[in-house]
Structures are given as structure tokens and as C-alpha cells.
Amino acid sequence: MKIAIASGKGGTGKTTLSVNLAVFLSETYKTNNIVLIDLDVEEPNSGLFLNGKLISSESKYRMIPKWNPEKCTLCGNCQKVCNFHAVLKLGKKIAVFNELCHGCYACSELCPTGSLPMVKEKMGELKQFEVGNINFIESRLDIGQEQAVPLISQTIDFVENQFDDDSIFIYDSPPGTSCPVIEATKDADIVILITEPTPFGLHDLKLAIETMDELKQEYAVVINRANIGDDSVEKYCKERNIQIIAKIPNDRKIAEIYSKGELIYKQIPEMKEELKKIGKYIFEMKNGEKR
């Protein structure tokens, strides 16, 4: 069972929900098959709320071409076949601009003399932690690496190989509606969209819903900071028959607990009540009572 927690707008509570839900589920259902994965590789935050024990750490790489001048005839085919202008023939040299390369292999495989072998370039770090009986995976993009998608995709592969299919996977996804979010949510069984009841929240929720519809993905909504703004998110969901599974109250105390990197539900009973609703929703789906 794969649950992706996403949102169009940033800062609406994706990480708060992901970490609180993961720990709540593992404690309440006494299960040891909860896997929490931080896929917001540009700015991974889940780990700040979890006191985990590091189990393993590995560098993650992407493949880019590297010029080997020995046999190169400077025919310029590499430059011709690169749609991203990442390979240029400059005088008597071939220059590769790593940050422009998408790793399609065309220049390398279509080079008549094999002068552009693909080599590994480090793009980030994947770490595995144990937090109580939760498995927590965090991937972190190196600063200066511009493309999040390859690291997100490798992280999902890692997780799927490492853990039982029967596990409950919680993906803390990146914000927005473009490629990184799509990569993080496309294989999920359900996407929980968390938003806040404000004009910005509603606007970005609509974008996120359009994206999920495009992916033909199932989704439900959680409202965070309920009552801080207006009722337009609720109205919108009602009109479109979108299920609102929980409403996390607006409370300065919650913001203060969050600011310290602590879990909300252990101090705020109302938060625990809302997590129970989400837990119930997830287990009903898992047991096939929904859909």
C-alpha cells in the first residue's frame, strides 16, 4: 500500500502529516511494516522530526558522458544528436555540460568511435534509519544538482526492492505540480492532498487535482489550519465530490510544537483524533473495503 502525501502549495503540512501519521500508525496498530520515505529531495525535512538510528548510507549517481580524446575524430555527431545542447564541439575539444545533460545516452551510443563513455556522477545521498519500528528513508540532493527526478526515481526503486509489498509506504512528496511531484505520486495507490483553507491553498489544490486527474490517480483531501481562512476549499471539494478525510485545527500551539521539531499528536489530542480518521481511511482502503 503506497500513500503519497502531496500538495500544490508549499508549507501546507506535508511533512507534518507524513511524520505524525507514520509514528501514529506504527504505535496504534503495533505494526512494524511502516516505511516512511522523504521524497522532497531538494529540501528533505522529515528527519528533523524523527530521532532515527542510521542503518545505512549510500551515494546515488546518474550517468553522464565523459569525453575520451584518444580515438575521437571530432566528427561532431555528438553535438548534433544532443537535443539539450549539453555536448558541444569547441575547437579541437568536446565539452560536456553536466547540468544540461538528461542522461539519454544518445551521444555516447551513437559515437562512431566510442569516445563518449557514460560515467557516474554523484547526485545525492540515500540514508536508511530505524525510528522505533518504523523504517525511514531519506534522499538528499547535492547542492548544485538541478534535477530532482532521477534521485526520486532511484529512491522509489530502492524502497520497493528493500521492503515487503505488504508494507505501508508513506511518501512525503515535494511541493508543486510538475515533474518531481509526478515522479513521487505516479505509482501511489492513493494520494492525500493536504491544503489550507485560503485563496492560495485552494488555487494550488486545484492545480494539484488537475495533475492527479491527468495521472488518473486516486486522491482525497486533508485540510490543515482549518478555520484560518474561508470555507472555499470545503465548498469546492463538496461540489466535486472529493472526500475530505480530516481537518487539522488551526492552533498557534501546533505551530510552536512543529517549530521545535516535535510530533504534534503526542501533545495535541485533537491532532490524534484526526490521525485516527486518516488511519481508518487507509486501512479500509488496504483491506479493499473502498473502491
Binding site: 525535512n45 538541478e146 517549530s259
Partner: peptide, 26 residues
């Protein structure tokens, strides 16, 4: 938000960068 392509693209050529943060661990 983030540190990827769109951010790199918006930073290039800036005269002054204003970082808005909040007093939380994240």
C-alpha cells in the same frame, strides 16, 4: 521553493537575494 532548476534559473543575474525563512527547525 526548493534548490533545483527553477530556483537556479530565477537566481541567475540577481542584484540582491531576499531569503524569507521562518523560526522553525525546517
Amino acid at each position: 521553493p526548493g534548490i533545483g532548476c527553477p530556483v537556479v534559473s530565477s537566481l541567475s543575474g540577481a542584484s540582491f537575494v531576499v531569503i524569507v525563512t521562518e523560526a522553525t527547525v525546517s
